[in-house]
């Protein structure tokens, strides 16, 4: 094992780590927006909306991410749209993450003790205000630790976008491996960067969990 390979390619790996983080971040933010819609559909009083939401979740959690990514890629090609690979990559991550985030938000909404909205209604709050002032703030607070966890999962999932050519951490590791003929060092280097990113995120997650428990434990 020659550690200097890792040291020499440190710059490339660091840059690639930035791409990984950026792609994952874009994926989770867009995924949050779509996930919010999915969650809204799942808790809607309208049956057809609920069904669509359920199908979305089942679809994007059931089909493996790699298949989803390749599907989007070929889908766009089939219909002649010349979209840069990055759009397919971020889009794929976002659509997939939306399914999981939708469920996280739904779980968080259910976790808010029902008595709280009941108290608000009894006091005469309008429906929209119950949402705005009581349910949403608490649901969001509860969902932060699992969302940070989702971010960690997305960082790992982003390694798959290497197959559509994005120069993120995994692809750059592959490049280094083929250039230096030292795959062991190349992938250990990439792995170390992934570990570092995820350990930092996990630290944030633990901190978030502690601080949010103070604000409103039951």
């Amino acid at each position: 094992m020659k550690p200097d390979v890792i040291l020499n390619s440190f710059g490339y790996l660091a840059e690639a780590a930035g791409v990984t983080i950026a792609v994952s971040f874009a994926g989770i933010v867009i995924g949050f927006a779509i996930g919010g819609l999915v969650c809204a559909a799942r808790v809607s009083p309208r049956v057809w909306l609920r069904r669509i939401g359920a199908i979305y979740v089942s679809l994007f959690r059931g089909v493996p991410l790699l298949v989803q990514l390749l599907f989007i890629y070929y889908f766009l090609a089939e219909f002649g749209l010349d979209v840069p690979a990055i759009v397919a990559a971020v889009g794929g991550l976002a659509l997939s993450s939306a399914a999981y985030q939708g469920e996280i938000l739904r779980g968080a909404l259910n976790a808010v003790p029902r008595g709280q909205s009941e108290a608000a209604i009894a006091l005469g709050f309008a429906g929209a205000d119950v949402w705005r002032r009581i349910l949403l703030p608490q649901a969001l607070r509860i969902s932060i630790p699992p969302l940070i966890n989702e971010f960690i999962l997305l960082i790992k999932a982003s390694s798959l976008v290497s197959v559509v050519g994005i120069a993120e951490l995994t692809r750059v590791s592959m490049n280094i491996a083929s250039l230096t003929y030292r795959p062991l060092e190349a992938y250990v280097g990439g792995g170390l960067f992934y570990l570092a990113i995820n350990l930092i995120l996990a630290g944030f997650g633990a901190m978030a969990e502690r601080r949010l428990a103070i604000g409103g434990g039951r």
Binding site: M1, I152, K156, A157, S158, S159, L160, S162, T170, S173, M174, A177, R182, P183, L184, A186, Y187, V188, G190, G191, Y194, L195, N198, L199, A202
Partner: peptide, 23 residues
């Protein structure tokens, strides 16, 4: 446990398949 949960599966596979011979 931390290593195998903190890194992508694909990277682990590459390590085993391509990097394996070197160990």
């Amino acid at each position: 446990v931390e290593i195998f949960r903190g890194t992508p599966f694909l990277v682990q596979l590459f390590l085993l398949y391509a990097g394996g011979p070197y160990i």
